[in-house]
Design a protein around this nucleic acid. Structure first.
Lengths: 205, 205
DNA sequence: CGCGTTTTGTACTGCTCGGTACAATTTAGG
DNA sequence: CCTAAATTGTACCGAGCAGTACAAAACGCG
């Protein structure tokens, strides 16, 4: 037994890193966000991250693992509005906060256009198929989270008994993802707000 | 060797083609549809088209021109439902026929998943930027066509005077494109039909 | 037939891709 | 100091990319 000190204390023995891992991951996130998984090349990534290639591989594994870590950061950062919306008091408020939060994210000029979970790897070559399926799973997890929330709302009398939480959840995801396409196509904040106002009219009373 | 005689015999003087240009274009369309512009490689395309590379370049120019021709064929073939929906008698029927036609196209097992105009080049590298912008323009042209149709409907008293044709058009495109994402994520026909039923509830009376 | 014209298949170009080998460099521990 | 461990930069790898040169093959026409 050499070291009874596993990893609690860093005690890094070699040459220290000259870059901030989280900061570099944020830069990688914006590149993937703007160009998608396939469209983002290694030179694109290393240039934006300010590091060279072996440093990227040492810190993040490979391109796919880097993308997954960037997705995690996306979910906990720019896309956190989605899970946050689940905590709204009523089902209608969940729907409204989801879409308004989406508009805020999609129109924030500091962000690339669109939603990474949609345009990261929608249709792609065979090499990106794992990433494509991962994004499908992530989108599906949003739908199930919404469905669970709406089922709770119905059991609490917040939704009519004849409403279908699964349909409400898929409708919400459909509008949200459609808004993402609108954002990549250049729609303005006001235009999206009008769309959301209209989408809200379909909500059960 | 027998001559398959593609379409016509315009008394061409050289060696005749051994493949049907339109048929090859259909094959190319499905490859672009399934893998997107960047994800579809030249070997993918030539293999599906049953021709070799110089024949492709001689008949279609290059990859980008081939994609544009495939898009034209897509618009006049699988996606013709969209323009066809404009001829419905009422604005509400236009909306309904647009979305139901979209469901038919998106759930046809002979087609790849999703909508080519959405997933052909949503986020991509710099090399595909022209194609990306082209698809943005094509999606925008659908919105303006819908808007024109809804403006006519309002002038005919088919829509309330306080309704906004531009918002109605963008809402329709948002739901349609959202359905495309649902389709790529594996949604079934019934699930999409429920979504459309719900989206219809937002329509002005 | 011979000639011009067009398509076909093979083989190649230059380039970029994701991923790595290797040596120099910089730290900590003995 | 010396050694081990970790990062850094350069330079490279095989593979795949879009696109093309070239010659053989297959036609219409005289």
């Amino acid at each position: 037994m050499k070291r009874p000190n596993p990893k609690r204390a860093p005690a890094s023995r070699g040459r220290p890193r000259t870059f901030d891992v989280d900061r570099a991951l944020d830069r990688a996130l914006t590149v993937f966000w703007r160009k998608g998984y396939e469209g983002a090349s290694l030179p694109d990534l290393t240039r934006a991250m300010g590091i060279n290639r072996p440093s990227l591989y040492a810190a993040f594994g490979n391109k796919e693992q880097l993308f997954r870590k960037a997705m995690d950061r996306y979910a906990q950062g720019p896309a956190a509005y989605a899970l946050c919306a689940l905590e709204a008091p009523t089902a209608r408020a969940v729907f409204e906060r989801l879409l308004c939060g989406g508009i805020d994210m999609l129109t924030n000029p500091r962000n690339p256009r669109g939603c990474l979970a949609v345009q990261g790897a929608l249709a792609c070559g065979d090499a990106a198929d794992n990433v494509r399926k991962e994004l499908i799973a992530r989108r599906a997890s949003l739908v199930t989270a919404l469905q669970d929330r709406f089922e709770r709302a119905r059991s609490e009398g917040d939704l009519p008994p004849d409403s279908d939480p699964a349909v409400l959840a898929r409708y919400a995801a459909t509008v949200l993802h459609g808004l993402s396409i609108q954002a990549t196509s250049g729609a303005t904040r006001q235009e999206m707000q009008r769309i959301v106002e209209m989408a809200l009219r379909a909500w059960p009373t």
